[in-house]
């Protein structure tokens, strides 16, 4: 079957079979290697992308089901600068070490920041509890998100 969706502001038209996951299609057909396989259970968060603005685990999302959606990864064009802000703060606080969980994590952070959420450190921790990071101990990640949330309203 054919599916059509926006991926990072480009129209993607793919011939796919029903069983193909969004993760498989993004990686193997569209070459979006920033979307990672980490567990296949929707549990680790490394494969998270934004589907119509919502963070979804692409490894447990069938590609056929996102026909017509608007999908974004960390490489999405970014006129308002929310991605850039997050990337910058993550780099400045070393919110990534090995970096494998980072693109998925940033997708969830993007949704939080863009909603204009202003959360406490503990609320940030709860909001990101669907993402496992094994390197940073989360502290620097929370630093980065906290700062991005504080700066974003002045940018938008």
């Amino acid at each position: 079957m054919q599916v059509e969706f926006q991926f990072n502001d480009e129209r993607a038209i793919c011939d796919i079979a029903g069983h193909e996951t969004l993760l498989a299609v993004l990686r193997d057909k569209l070459g979006a290697m920033e979307v990672k396989y980490g567990c296949g259970e929707g549990a680790c968060g490394s494969c998270v992308v934004l589907v119509d603005g919502n963070p979804l685990a692409s490894c447990i999302t069938l590609c056929a089901s996102v026909d017509g959606s608007d999908i974004m990864s960390v490489k999405a064009p970014d006129p308002p600068g929310a991605w850039a802000l997050l990337k910058d703060r993550f780099a400045a606080h070393e919110g990534a070490q090995c970096g494998f969980c980072t693109p998925g994590l940033l997708a969830s952070c993007f949704a939080l920041v863009q909603r204009g959420e202003k959360l406490t450190r503990q609320e940030i921790r709860e909001a990101l509890s669907g993402h496992l990071c094994r390197c940073t101990g989360y502290h620097h990640i929370v630093d980065a998100v906290e700062e991005a949330m504080a700066i974003w309203p002045t940018m938008s």
Binding site: G18, T21, E41, I60, L62, A64
Partner: peptide, 22 residues
């Protein structure tokens, strides 16, 4: 798909097709 797709990924369950209810 929260329960079903992981089982399909792991090949714990095998099916002929899905009826997406969205």
């Amino acid at each position: 798909g929260q329960s079903l797709v992981p089982l399909l990924n792991l090949h714990v369950a095998e099916i002929k097709g899905v009826v997406d209810l969205q």
